[in-house]
Design a protein around this nucleic acid. Structure first.
Length: 271
DNA sequence: AGCGGAACCTGTCGGC
DNA sequence: TGCCGACAGGTTCCGC
């Protein structure tokens, strides 16, 4: 489900809603295969602890707890976090945290592809160590992007989605970024010109930043922590728009498959 | 070393 | 109506 802007939106919502609150009890409705650790260990590590911060790294949510512990959550395709006065009877509810404020923090996940883990140190999560560069941080520069493009040999679209290179860009934003930069998603990273690299650098940051300002993209089921929709879906130009007219030239948008994922692009505008 | 494909799951939708 | 395949916002593992 979520890419960087959606995860950032959820992190901000949770930060605002649950910081200072603590976990009184926990009901685990289903733990497999989302939990990599024993459910009893998971529960014991959480009970009584207080949320002191919620942040994002790549597409991971990091709940900082006091006394020191971290709940690390990856939503994968269909994970969601909801804060509400009471838990609704949704079939996708997987865990219900009963908070001291009497509100409920609910983890939902239709496909159960998400991952949850409690650790005493973030160093205990190898996947976090393997992550690439945060695109909105000062770590990403034109020079760094040029270097990453040069050392890779693959089409630009799967490159943009590789979290070991640049984190946070998923299937929606990869297509949107390439449309705005007018680059064909099949082009090799080796063949991206200097001018195109500069455009990519700017557009990657612009698109992600704009999507955060719109609270993410709600195409099917993404919702904020308070159940409201994001609004970046109103600004999508190609994602999910196969056969529709390109907003620039009116040619039909094409859908192709790359690395087992759909790519949407305008064959006339993107070269 | 780094790539593409399969696997991990469930739900929905369109075609026959 | 029922069945079947394709598809869905992601990552990891495996073989080449």
């Amino acid at each position: 489900m979520p890419e960087l802007p959606e995860v950032e939106t959820i992190a901000r919502g949770l930060q605002e809603q649950i910081t200072g609150d603590s976990i009184e009890s926990l009901v685990i409705l289903r733990s497999q295969p989302m939990l990599s650790q024993d459910p009893d260990v998971f529960e014991t590590a959480l009970l009584g602890r207080r949320f002191c911060n919620v942040s994002r790294r790549a597409k991971y949510l990091i709940f900082e707890l006091e006394p020191q512990a971290y709940l690390v959550s990856h939503l994968r395709m269909t994970g969601k976090w909801v804060v509400a006065p009471e838990a609704n009877e949704s079939a996708s509810n997987r865990m219900i945290f009963h908070l001291k404020s009497h509100r409920k923090l609910i983890y939902q996940d239709i496909r159960c592809l998400g991952k949850l883990e409690v650790v005493s140190s973030l160093k205990n999560i190898p996947a976090l160590e393997r992550l690439g560069i945060e695109p909105l941080s000062s770590d990403l520069t034109e020079e760094v992007l040029a270097h990453l493009l040069r050392q890779s040999v693959r089409p630009i679209k799967p490159f943009l989605m590789d979290p070991q290179k640049i984190v946070g860009i998923g299937n929606i934003y990869a297509s949107e970024i390439l449309f705005r930069t007018k680059i064909d998603p099949r082009r090799s990273t080796q063949q991206i010109s200097f001018e195109e690299q500069r455009r990519l650098f700017k557009v990657i940051r612009d698109v992600l930043q704009e999507a955060i300002e719109q609270n993410g993209t709600s195409i099917s089921d993404f919702r904020q922590v308070d159940d409201k929709k994001g609004s970046f879906q109103n600004f999508l130009q190609v994602y999910g728009k196969a056969h529709q007219a390109c907003p620039l030239c009116e040619e039909p948008i094409l859908r192709i498959v790359q690395s087992q994922r759909s790519s949407f692009y305008c064959p006339h505008c993107q070269t």
